[in-house]
Computed example of a mutant assay.
Amino acid sequence: MVLLRRVIGDALRARRQGQHRTLREVSTAANVSLGYLSEIERGQKEASSELLAAICEALGARLSELLGEVSDTLSLAEEMDGVLVPVDEKTADDALRKVARESDVAVSVRQDSPLKATLHATRKPREVVYAA
């Protein structure tokens, strides 16, 4: 089963690393402890909407952009057979791995156990076009 907090954490980490910023820089700007931000990025803690908004602001992003990316990732995961449903022990032992791609998003899922899956999403950087 794909956990929303993991997908959100992956999206936040990707944005931070894409800006070549440290956890310390972002945690200071968002006024959240470095350890707690790390736990959010690793999908170990579920952040409130207020905290997500503060982290997004520190990253120079809108909360709606982050949630849109998360929605795209979950949508792809839902289309992959068996990703969001429990699996039997035999299938879990095989450490099932699936990959889906849609334009600029790629999702890889590894089924670790009947109730645990690791989802890794990658996104091609979007080109920013400024109007004159």
Score class of each variant (00 low, 15 high):
G9R: 00
A11W: 03
L12V: 13
L12P: 08
R13S: 09
R13W: 04
R13A: 12
A14P: 04
R15I: 03
R16C: 04
Q17F: 14
G18P: 00
G18I: 01
Q19D: 14
Q19M: 13
H20K: 08
H20R: 07
H20D: 15
R21T: 12
R21C: 15
T22Q: 06
T22S: 15
T22R: 05
L23I: 03
L23T: 03
R24T: 12
E25W: 00
T28R: 13
A29N: 14
A29S: 14
A29G: 12
A30L: 09
N31G: 03
V32N: 03
V32D: 05
V32C: 05
V32P: 04
S33T: 11
S33K: 06
S33F: 05
L34E: 10
G35N: 10
G35H: 11
G35Q: 07
G35D: 10
Y36G: 06
Y36V: 10
L37T: 02
L37P: 05
L37M: 05
S38M: 06
S38Y: 08
E39G: 03
E39W: 11
I40R: 02
I40T: 01
R42M: 02
R42Q: 05
R42N: 02
Q44Y: 06
Q44K: 13
Q44I: 10
Q44T: 08
K45V: 05
K45I: 04
K45Q: 09
A47T: 10
S48M: 15
